[in-house]
Computed example of a mutant assay.
Amino acid sequence: MAKSATDLMQEILFSTVLDSIVALKDASNGLPNPLLRELNSIHPNTTYADLPREVQSAIATNVRSAFTRLLKEGYSVSPGTEPRRAPPAASAPTHRPRGGERRPPRSGGPGPKRGPGSGSGPGNKPPRRP
């Protein structure tokens, strides 16, 4: 009888955790203080590179064997396909106007005139009246 994917993944993860604990013990050479130090250095933000070489090796071996075991059990192990994006709408412009081309005004009229003496900011002072 074929195992469910959940049962199979639980077995794989359980054996991986046990192998990693054994690898931690091997990394400490059987001494309690280094083992405690290694255990205390593991936290939620620990990266793969932060782990001892023995644990990295155990994880790499377990990952390879997990994929092999999944394939033997008949499960497909392949990258998922990304959903295709819809093509852009035909009404959207396909190019930007260049320097010499004129753009149509954004609103109904030409807008406020901007020139020397208009607006606010340094250098744009209103003209003095006599």
Rank of each mutant, 00 (worst) to 15 (best):
A2I: 14
A2W: 14
A2T: 15
K3I: 08
S4K: 13
S4C: 12
A5S: 10
T6R: 11
D7G: 12
L8I: 07
Q10H: 09
I12Y: 00
L13Q: 10
L13V: 10
S15G: 13
V17K: 04
V17F: 07
D19Q: 13
D19W: 03
D19C: 11
S20Q: 04
I21W: 04
V22H: 06
A23N: 06
D26Y: 12
D26W: 10
D26G: 15
D26A: 15
A27M: 07
A27K: 09
N29F: 07
N29P: 11
G30R: 04
L31M: 14
P32I: 15
L35E: 10
E38H: 15
E38T: 08
S41A: 15
P44Q: 10
P44C: 08
N45S: 14
N45E: 13
T46C: 01
T46H: 03
T46E: 04
T47E: 04
Y48D: 08
A49Y: 04
A49S: 12
D50Q: 14
D50P: 03
L51W: 02
L51V: 14
P52E: 04
P52V: 12
E54F: 07
E54C: 07
E54Y: 08
V55K: 01
S57V: 08
S57M: 03
A58R: 09
I59S: 02
A60V: 08
A60W: 00
T61P: 02
S65A: 15
S65Q: 15
A66F: 03
R69K: 09
L70G: 01
L70T: 01
Y75C: 02
S76Q: 11
S78T: 05
P79H: 05
P79C: 04
P79W: 04
G80T: 05
P83D: 00
R84P: 02
R84S: 10
R85M: 03
A86I: 08
P87W: 05
P87S: 10
P88W: 06
P88S: 07
P88F: 07
P88I: 05
A89W: 07
A89I: 07
A90F: 11
S91T: 08
P93L: 00
H95R: 09
R98C: 02
R98Q: 05
G99C: 12
G99Y: 13
E101C: 00
R102I: 05
R103M: 06
R103C: 08
R103H: 08
P105Q: 11
P105T: 09
S107M: 11
S107Y: 13
G108W: 13
G109C: 09
G109A: 12
P110N: 09
P110K: 02
P110Q: 09
G111S: 00
G111L: 00
P112C: 06
R114Q: 14
R114P: 00
G117F: 11
G117E: 03
S118W: 10
S120I: 15
G121F: 00
G121E: 01
P122A: 15
G123F: 05
G123M: 09
N124L: 14
N124I: 06
K125C: 02
P126D: 04
P127F: 12
P127W: 11
R129Y: 06
P130T: 12
P130K: 13
P130W: 11
